[in-house]
Design a protein around this nucleic acid. Sequence first.
DNA 1: TGGGTCACGGTTTTT
DNA 2: CCGTGACCCA
Length: 680
Amino acid sequence: MEKILESLNDAQQEAVKTIDGPVLILAGAGSGKTKTITSRLAYLLAQGIPASSILTLTFTNKAATEMRERALSLIEDKTYPPLLCTFHKFGLLFLKFNMEKLGRRNSFVVIDTDDKKRIIKSFGIDMPVGLVANEISRYKNSLIDPALAWEKAELPNYKKIAQTYEQYEKYIKDNNLVDFDDLLVLPYKILNENEDLCRETSERYKYIMVDEYQDTNDLQYRLIRKICSTHENICVVGDDDQSIYGWRGANIKNILDFKDEFKNTKIIKLENNYRSTTNILKAANELIEHNRSRLGKVLRSTKGEGTAISIIESHDEKNESTIIAKRIKVLIDKGVSPRDIAVLYRINALSRSLEEGLNRVGVPYNMVGGVKFYERTEIKDLISYLRIIANPNDDFSIKRIINRPKRGLGKVTIDKILKGAYENHLSIYGYITTKQDELKGMVSKKCYNALVEFSENLQRLIEVSSEATYNIIDELESLYGIKKYYDQLPDSLERVSNIDEFYGLFRDLVKQNPEMSIDEFLNDLALQSDQDAIDTENIAIMSIHTSKGLEFDYLFVIGMEEGFLPLVGDGSDIEEERRLGYVAITRAKEELTLSYSESRFYKGRRTELTKSRFLKESGVCQGSLVLEKTTSYRKGDLVKHKIFGIGRIFEISKVKREFKLKINFSGTKRDIVASFVEKI
DNA sequence: TGGGTCACGGTTTTT
DNA sequence: CCGTGACCCA
């Protein structure tokens, strides 16, 4: 007990020791939030509360993993660790036990956003699929069913969306699929409709903690309400200034209004920052002060002043990335460990030029996030194969791989099969295996043989999987030759190595847990984020969103321009953009470098840019700062002047904060400020 | 059926 | 700019 408390400050101790009733812990960036939660968890156990009564919900798998490790290190008896997982994982577990309450089997399959879009697309709607998918998601999270969506729809497009929504819901229900939203929606529905189960569940989890509460959505709030309905021992931890998921339905009101929603809430503020230097905190505090809707808190530094925040001003993104890469190289050469260095950006598109720069200078890096491992085509193909082994009637998955690797089945043949299956009220697999005569008369001999081979192989695989999950991979490869297929396609090297990695992952997990079924494996996979696999050898580059919860000694933020940070567009919220800026700045421990460029090449054209208002708002653009202005002009470049015409640069110099070029205009030499000429 | 060409549109951010 | 999707021809 003493051990748990001794390294905590007063506020943290109070947070840890307040175990009954609603508690709101406002934990500023770097205030030891994870430490506080994990200590509280250990404290609850030390008080004799059974592990099975405690539920801790997090936002990402990474956070869950980290907390689990840290909590376990504080606990003596590790036999029955308390449940600590993401909201979605909790929903998944809950549905595994209670799906039959909705008249559905618990052998459901979790689909990801990509699957969802494919399904919607297959309905042939003439609207952007992503938009429709988002709207459906919005409806589901607001518990609006298709009928109500139809009623509320005024514009024809929304009528169409409502129709698609209905079609989609029917489709996934018929195929026993569950999307990410369902993992929250369905548990809520079950709890809402079964009072006894709700009470039982609430009594089981007597102590609940929720991390990153500022990023919960309405549905998560309702779910929490249900689960703590019998006791209100609910402790939420968050920072309203770090709410950055409004775009996907996170409701900052959840944290702002928590004290009104739960009576007798005890509010504890953690304002001591143990992470960043005073200079960095000052910028962060000044920036976030510009927001109006916030609970209000100021981070106090516990470290020294540190180095001044450095600003890089470049002519274009190529220049920017070169400077940053060079600076990083200097740091590494000085002995800084690459894992303590990171570069952040607001949008993924900015990673490209950055990567090029790092490659030019020879700095190896690790891009976190981006295209997810399990979203790659080859991996999704493998997932589809595993899905149909687990459930051969999964039409959705079978359609994906019925001609991959190519076995000569074209659109016409596939349409015939679909039609036949539909008319016989059978799944595709069911149709192929039971209506062989009909099939034979319908498709070409070649196609028929291919289909028979395909289904026989599948049967063989299903047999193998019932014997030993571990052997599936070898059998899958030898029967279908997926690796061989990808080996002769573009990017074969990367794809094959991805496939190998996936096979390795599968084998590892089966080894660890020989009882694991394929759909267990698949469902866990769907909820996995690949941030768990951060490699610690190299510097990290990632989006600001991805960087949430992380910290780095040396931090660079690129794209500090109007239009990029803040990103402006329809539906963008300047306060949320500011919070993103705040999150970015507060990732830095020792040295922070903010970079902006005068222009960028984006979406196929070059755009002139002005520096971000956040630079002024955070106070870094006036006063003591190291400014490095750069130019992309080189000796020998041809430039054009409005009056003097075309000339060649023969000397470049820096005067105050401007670049002076000595230019030879067909014999006449002149000194011109760089901003008056144009590169040609 | 499948490969090739061309036009278009698009980008935050994640479970 | 790049990747995707539609369309056309061998």
